[in-house]
Amino acid sequence: MQTKRTIFHNRWLPYLLLAPQLAITVIFFLWPAAQAVRQSFLREDAFGLKTEFVGLGNYLRLFSDPSYLNAFQVTAVFAVSVAALSMGLALLLAVAVDRVLRANQSYTTLLVWPYAVAPAVAGVLWWFLFNPTIGILPYALEQLGYDWNHNLDGTDAMILVVIAASWKQISYNFLFFVAGLQAIPQSLREAAAIDGAGPVERFFTVVFPLLSPTTFFLLVINVTYTMFETFAVIDAATEGGPSQATNILVYKVYRDGFVSLNLGSSAAQSVILMFIVIALTFVQFRWIERRVQY
């Protein structure tokens, strides 16, 4: 692609124009990141009076700490469940809507509505639905013989946060899936129909493979989202409990750092998280660039 090139005659003007953006990056990202890296090599006592350099001590302690390894496992379960649930449901909805859209184009604008409404309503909605005292779902489950209590039961708590976190993602995933499905030419499905593939077979042998760039993109986005942006969901719903059953990595950084004031360990954890983000971003760019549409 040809981009428009501007020639600056003043040597300093380009730097001046870049300065605000650079300043924001440095102040809000690079500097705190550097602080975290520095902090992660130090150990401070609880009163902040004494600081000593411990090298990789904080990291080594983390990896022999059962509660940290547990957080890793919880995060993995959480991320995979949220990605699977939110993407699965979104794909199901998208396939249904795609059929309607192919018959009638005028519905397209309506699709943006759930995206505008969903996040705002989601919090309140799930809080009401699952509230053990006034919620309808615990009541319904009780009728079915299941004693729902996410305050005591780790699995219930995990299910709750997975649903709450997925809910927000569904509309986002849904839009991408609809766009992806719409981009698949109708004639391919027709060719497959003539080639003797039933609707289900058609979906798995033609539609889904062609959707794989979208699916992969969403997978990375969703995993990133569950790992880093579900802090509020966890904090509001379970606070990482009961007994650490929903204590994901990001939440543990916060608990250890700001509640337990174990700053060295917290910093080491955030540095590890930072590397995970970098890795995910790298994967995203490398793979998506290479595996774009056919």
């Binding site: 004639s187 391919l188 027709e190 060719a191 497959a192 129909a193 003539i194 080639d195 042998t205 056919y294």
Partner: peptide, 30 residues
């Protein structure tokens, strides 16, 4: 009858080849 049960084959204007399959797989799919 479903398209598959009419014993016909169709050649489309945009060819409608399956982009994720090799030529061999395209031919053998049906």
């Amino acid at each position: 009858a479903e398209p598959a049960d009419r014993d016909i084959a169709m050649v489309f204007q945009n060819y409608a080849l399956y982009p994720h399959m090799s030529v061999r797989q395209n031919l053998s799919y049906g």
